[in-house]
């Protein structure tokens, strides 16, 4: 029976539990969870069962459980997606598939997330840790997050005697502040200034010397704080 079930992952964990082979059940459930692409809630439950099996076993290593916790955090980010984003894309929470970290970043930063604030952008930066740095999209995503945060504000209207002080209220600088406060390595997560300022995503803003000045001044300030 065991042999037959080995080729039937989706049932074999039930047998493993019956046989008190919790580490085997953990393995199978984990494999099933990572293969699951159709149903968010099924993936979540497979991860949960795998974690409980791991904790019930004497053999499973700490880092294996940590893998599952990382996956749970990713799933929690998906569960926390704002309702209006799901609505505007006609995603049904009950039947949605599990999204990749990359997809989640795109959703959190998208124009559909009309009420997004520094917390959404900070979440996106957290999600970036799920994307491999070797991935071709990694740098692009990083740039995307910051460009989208910049586009939340109307920079040409920031005038007055102390334009730098007014900048502090922009989503871009609030995201920076939040990331700094929560101990994110800004050298790693902040794009190079020239790359940022010449990004296509910024559109006409690129040509505004006023905007360029504000961002450069802001970067200098950060540089002083960080180093």
């Amino acid at each position: 029976l065991g042999q037959f079930l080995d080729s039937h992952d989706h049932l074999s964990w039930l047998h493993d539990i019956q046989m008190n082979s919790y580490s085997k059940a953990h393995d199978t459930l984990k494999r099933l969870a990572f293969k699951e692409t159709e149903q968010f809630s099924r993936k979540k439950t497979l991860i949960s069962l795998s974690k409980l099996s791991a904790l019930a076993s004497d053999e499973v290593q700490e880092d294996e459980i940590q893998d599952l916790i990382d996956e749970q955090i990713l799933l929690a980010h998906q569960e926390a997606l704002p309702v209006n984003v799901l609505h505007s894309l006609q995603i049904d929470q009950d039947t949605m598939p599990p999204f990749s970290a990359m997809n989640l970043i795109q959703l959190y930063c998208s124009e559909h997330n009309s009420s997004s604030n520094e917390y959404d952008f900070k979440k996106s930066l957290d999600l970036l840790s799920y994307v491999s740095k070797e991935d071709a999209e990694y740098e692009e995503l990083k740039l995307h997050i910051w460009c989208q945060s910049i586009k939340k504000d109307n920079w040409t209207q920031i005038q007055g005697p102390e334009p730098l002080a007014s900048c502090e209220h922009t989503i871009f600088f609030r995201t920076l502040g939040l990331a700094y406060d929560q101990g994110l390595d800004l050298h790693e997560y902040l794009p190079d200034i020239d790359t940022l300022l010449s990004s296509d995503e910024l559109g006409d803003l690129r040509d505004s010397s006023h905007f360029q000045y504000l961002i450069r001044a802001g970067y200098e300030q950060i540089e002083r704080v960080v180093t």
Binding site: I47, S48, L49, K51, Q72, A76
Partner: peptide, 9 residues
């Protein structure tokens, strides 16, 4: 699904 509640972080 009780597993989700118990395993939740």
């Amino acid at each position: 699904q009780l597993a989700d509640v118990i395993a939740s972080e």
